[in-house]
Computed example of a mutant assay.
Amino acid sequence: MNAPDNPAPAVELLGPAEIRQLADKLGVTPTKKLGQNFVHDPNTVRRIIGAADIGAEDHVVEIGPGLGSLTLGLLEAAHKVTVVEIDERLAGELPRTVAWRAPAAADRLTVITQDALQTRPEQIEAPTALVANLPYNVSVPVLLHFLAIFPTITRVLVMVQAEVADRLAAEPGSKIYGVPSVKASFYGDVRRAGSIGRHVFWPEPNIESGLVRIDRHRDAEWNLGDRDRVFPLVDAAFAQRRKTLRAALAGHYGSAQAAEEALTAAGIDPKLRGEKLGVADFVRLATVSADSAPEYRR
């Protein structure tokens, strides 16, 4: 028997009608508290997956899969997909949605029902990529949490509020450069990967969305063990943006004089503000502090 000229795709993505159908079935009304806005445009899903360079060898972790729009696309491209969903109704329905729209991929999906911020490294085996439409209200904490606990993640492609995307990808010296910018760049090279219009969501949000890509550092001069010394410095430097580093870090070091000495030893002008330092500067400062004063080791 000859194969049909146009065989059905192995994965059928969700459109607006299917999204409404699933929501009605579950009695789901998207809530601002959980940051729920469901993507209903297949072209946007494929664009996200393409921007993430997902391949057949990847184990992708997705946070907040919702009704499964992006999940189906990931299953089409990746070897394995693990999702973390806090809403029990959505988590329970997702395997049935995959069985309906992508039956051949059903055994490659794992669903974890819990708050993403409570995820532990032993729960997900060696994910290689993080791809998600992150809930806007917790996007940065969730992103940083997963980068911290899964060093096997080499690529990130997340959709977040446009303003957050700009902050994550901001360069030193920019008015919007701050704590999220530095902490994200600690893990990898961060860049804007595009914009997403409101019309691809249900319900349509009041804000624009942006894509952010992070490629983890391979040859950085630091490692994850430096994080606990670097991040407190970053927090202190930006807690009072208008202050010089000498003043802003006085509390961290015990005095303004001690802060100045540490900054000078690291080759950093104490009169600069935190927004002028790149992540490598903060790492160097943390290293100098740890080497010269054991009480600063954190």
Rank of each mutant, 00 (worst) to 15 (best):
residue 7 P to A: 07
residue 10 A to P: 06
residue 14 L to H: 11
residue 17 A to I: 12
residue 20 R to W: 09
residue 20 R to S: 09
residue 24 D to A: 12
residue 26 L to V: 07
residue 53 D to W: 10
residue 54 I to Q: 03
residue 55 G to Y: 05
residue 56 A to F: 07
residue 62 E to N: 12
residue 65 P to Q: 04
residue 67 L to A: 07
residue 68 G to M: 05
residue 86 I to Y: 11
residue 86 I to T: 13
residue 87 D to Y: 01
residue 92 G to A: 13
residue 97 T to E: 05
residue 99 A to C: 14
residue 100 W to H: 15
residue 126 A to M: 13
residue 133 N to H: 08
residue 137 N to Y: 04
residue 138 V to Y: 04
residue 143 L to V: 07
residue 152 T to A: 13
residue 155 R to W: 10
residue 156 V to Q: 02
residue 157 L to V: 14
residue 158 V to Y: 12
residue 163 E to R: 02
residue 165 A to K: 03
residue 166 D to A: 09
residue 171 E to V: 10
residue 181 S to C: 04
residue 190 V to K: 01
residue 190 V to D: 07
residue 192 R to C: 09
residue 197 G to H: 09
residue 198 R to M: 06
residue 205 P to W: 02
residue 206 N to E: 14
residue 209 S to Q: 01
residue 212 V to K: 01
residue 214 I to T: 05
residue 215 D to V: 10
residue 216 R to M: 03
residue 218 R to Q: 08
residue 225 G to S: 14
residue 228 D to N: 10
residue 231 F to D: 07
residue 232 P to Q: 03
residue 237 A to R: 01
residue 250 A to N: 13
residue 255 S to A: 14
residue 255 S to V: 13
residue 255 S to M: 14
residue 263 L to D: 00
residue 270 P to D: 12
residue 273 R to N: 06
residue 275 E to T: 02
residue 276 K to T: 10
residue 280 A to G: 03
residue 298 R to V: 14
